Amino acid sequence: MARATVRDVAAETGLSIATVSRVLNGQANVAEHTRELVLRAVERLGAQAPRPRSRTRPGAVHVRCPYLLTDYFGLIVTSVAEELSKHGRRVVLDAGTSAQKASVLPSLGSGDVAGAVLVLPPEPAEQLVRLRDRKFPFVVVDPRTELPRDVAAVSAAHFAGARKLVAHLVELGHRRIGVLGGPRDWLASDSRAAGYAAALADVGVLPSPELLRHVDEPTEENGYLAARDVLELRERPTALVAFNDKMAVGALRAARERGLSVPGDVSIAGFDDLDLSRATTPELTTVRQPVREMGRLAVTLLLRLLDRYEVDALHVELATELVVRGSTGPAR
């Protein structure tokens, strides 16, 4: 059978020669039903027309998480690696606190690395914008700072989760609520603080600055120190909300040292719903983040970018869920 030409395919489908050429050259600006129409015509004409070129960028995926891979970060990185493996992508892992010492962003795009997943990157937004301007595909998981709308990012609904948590405490009669916040320069800290304030504002209460503490690193020890400080106030809070479950565990220790019962004297709640939250006595009321799904969705977004598809929803927030357990109760 004679070789089918682009003109033959155009005549067969009723499409323009330019449209058929875009399909056969693997360009992205073609509707999916049009692409299928052309490929079926090619098959009917004897499959002698040129095959569409692959649009997928080949190469490995750089996964950067400059933190210890325990609990929260470990779950994200594991889900990212597992999802990439399903798609046959090799992973180049850069993890651990030592990875904070030097940014790898300027070097991304060289060698056989096709794209990247960046977990809570410590670099300023300007560096991420420069990486975007180089047309290098990447997705940010849990961004530290506010990002432009055209930088792909996946996060949890921090504001909504924090608002639900404090609304739960408000329903129990709490009005004097201490906040053990995370690092001041983390976007999640700001979003959660705004959620706490919104729930209090719903009942006409303004947050008290004396009840707010921020830590440089959200660890159990820092949660203990921050909670101890707040619980020493002359008019102590009736409830404490911590940036994460680790800090909430520290707050439980601080309450026990002062002879306070939980939740009888003070209610304590965390955030993340790690396994740790179910290993305490009492078990922690917390906000469940879809941590594994964040990693999987980041890979889905990245693969679409690597396939050179246009992605409309570049900023994706996944819903959180309030999990009520024994560490919260009615205010005295």
Rank of each mutant, 00 (worst) to 15 (best):
V6D: 00
A10T: 02
A11R: 06
T13E: 01
T13N: 01
L15Q: 01
I17K: 00
A18V: 12
V23T: 10
G26C: 02
E32F: 14
R35A: 08
R44E: 06
L45F: 02
L45S: 03
A47S: 13
Q48M: 12
A49T: 01
R53A: 11
T56G: 02
P58F: 01
G59T: 05
H62E: 15
V63S: 12
P66G: 14
P66D: 11
Y67D: 14
L68I: 15
D71K: 12
L75K: 05
I76R: 00
T78P: 01
S79N: 03
E82L: 09
S85H: 14
K86M: 12
G88N: 00
L93K: 06
T97A: 07
T97G: 09
S98K: 09
A99M: 06
Q100V: 12
S103D: 02
V104Y: 08
P106V: 10
V113T: 15
A114C: 11
G115N: 10
A116E: 15
L118V: 12
P122F: 10
E123Y: 08
V129P: 10
R130W: 10
D133I: 14
K135T: 15
V139W: 00
V140I: 04
V140Q: 00
E146Y: 08
P148H: 05
P148Q: 01
A153V: 01
A156H: 12
F159T: 12
F159I: 11
G161E: 07
K164E: 15
E171K: 15
L172K: 11
G173Y: 12
H174A: 00
R176M: 05
G178R: 05
P183Y: 04
P183L: 10
R184Y: 14
L187V: 11
A193Q: 07
A198E: 09
P207S: 00
E210T: 06
L211D: 01
E217M: 14
E221V: 12
Y224T: 04
L225A: 13
A226G: 09
D229H: 11
E232L: 14
R234L: 11
R236M: 09
V241R: 11
A242S: 13
G250H: 01
L252Y: 07
A255F: 09
R256W: 14
S261L: 15
G270L: 03
D272Q: 14
L276P: 03
S277F: 07
S277H: 04
S277M: 03
T281Y: 15
L284Y: 04
M294E: 07
M294G: 02
G295V: 11
G295F: 05
R296G: 06
R296I: 08
A298N: 00
V299M: 01
L301F: 07
L301S: 03
L303H: 03
L305C: 08
L305I: 06
V311Y: 03
D312E: 04
L314W: 03
L314H: 00
E317G: 02
A319T: 13
T320R: 08
T320K: 10
G329N: 14
